[in-house]
Amino acid sequence: MTLRPSALADRLGRAAVLGRIVLAAGGGYAIAALATALLSLVLPLPRSEAVTAATLASFAIMIAVVVVVFAARSLGRALAAIAIATLLLGGALWLVAGPLTPVVPT
């Protein structure tokens, strides 16, 4: 089946929107989670204070990421920004904490 150019553009547009939604939700949560874990370990505060401060900030971080993903000029740029941020945060966390053994929250 061949599509008229406008219909094709429409479908591509919808796919791009879906991509942004997935990226905003998944990338936003991933960055917020990594930032929380990292800040919990590196903030120069007593341990419980660092965890609390990082957790309180995590939701604002996630909202900011979502806004960035939807405001980016193209899906590709948004993806690149998320990928770089995730790698940086993940790498920093790995340096600080070492390879984490999975822990089941009780």
Binding site: A32, A33, L34, T36, A37, L39, S40, L41, R47, A50, V51, T52, A54, T55, L56, S58, F59, L93, A97, L100, V103, V104, P105, T106
Partner: peptide, 19 residues
């Protein structure tokens, strides 16, 4: 309900022990 949604700080700093 922050620790339900975002438990990762407790996971790394307290090995997941919320109590």
């Amino acid at each position: 309900l922050a620790l339900i949604y975002m438990p990762w700080g407790v996971t790394v700093a307290y090995k997941g022990d919320q109590q």
